[in-house]
Amino acid sequence: MIDWGQVFSNAAVELISPTTAAYALAALGLAIHFGYTGLLNFGQAGFMALGAYGYAISILTFGFPVWGAVLVGIGASVIFALILGVPTLRLRADYLAIVTIAAAEIVRLLFTTNTFVAVTGSANGLSEYKDGFRALNPLHFEGTAGFGPWQHSADDWWVIIVSWTVVALACLFTWSLMRSPWGRVLKGIREDEDAVRALGKNVYSYKMQSLILGGVFGTLAGMIFIMPRAVIPAHYATSLTFFIYAILLLGGAATILGPVVGSMLFWVLLSFFSGFVARAVEVGWLPISQVQGGQLRFILVGVAIMLIVIFRPQGLLGNKKELAFVK
């Protein structure tokens, strides 16, 4: 019959996995954009791709050290935010959504095309960029160590520790910004940018700062994302942005910890669900194939997005009154 222990422990592993951390960080960036400033950035996948490729290309093609590669990624995303922001931040919210989606797709297509295969690896992507990061690992032990279901190698623990430290620092950073007068201006812009403009604030500049800051978070998330896997351009499709939105809405769009809780819940539930379906198919409880079982979870994510937005728009942690939706 179904090995429930295995299903549960696989799900528990996702709780602190680097992937969960990466999604949490990307969602925190979106919280700054969407939840606090009201910017409908649908190009977060593009920022993540720039982080992933910026890091990997710097190391593989140019032999940069880890810190240099991180700076290249951040620099690339700042430039991307500027290129994106200059034409779009004066536009209405829904235009911004479409333009950011388009820009993220342009980024993905440029990384996918065969034209730049020597540098980007085209559709096959990039790998073998992890040595520099692993060399910094202070942990040294053979095999795996840990507690309960969390048994990992020294390299994996190093990735986990670094990624969650980055997430924690980003949360702290965002929290202190959002309780400052700077954060107050952002929230004002979310409510009504003309009113804020009439009060003498340079709305355009604040939106740009918000776009850059959230984008840099996305870029860092992109770097964390490629630590446990390779860089594959197909990962950075529009659905990635949609999943991050699902996480953000699940946790609460205008909250600091919402993205983190949302990401944990999202991945644990998703892993639990796919583990359960896979085994249920195995033992013949469900009359579908394993591949179909995999697709069921995407259907579930779609339905969940709809239900949350309709019935609990403030998310799990959001204040009921502070609905983060721009009118």
């Binding site: 107050r184 929230k187 004002g188 009504d192 009113a195 009439a198 009060l199 502070e322 609905l323």
Partner: peptide, 15 residues
């Protein structure tokens, strides 16, 4: 154009 989801005090401080 009162900023609906900011407190009255935050509205004022923004000014």
């Amino acid at each position: 154009k009162s900023l609906a989801l900011l407190s009255v005090m935050d509205n004022m401080k923004l000014g």
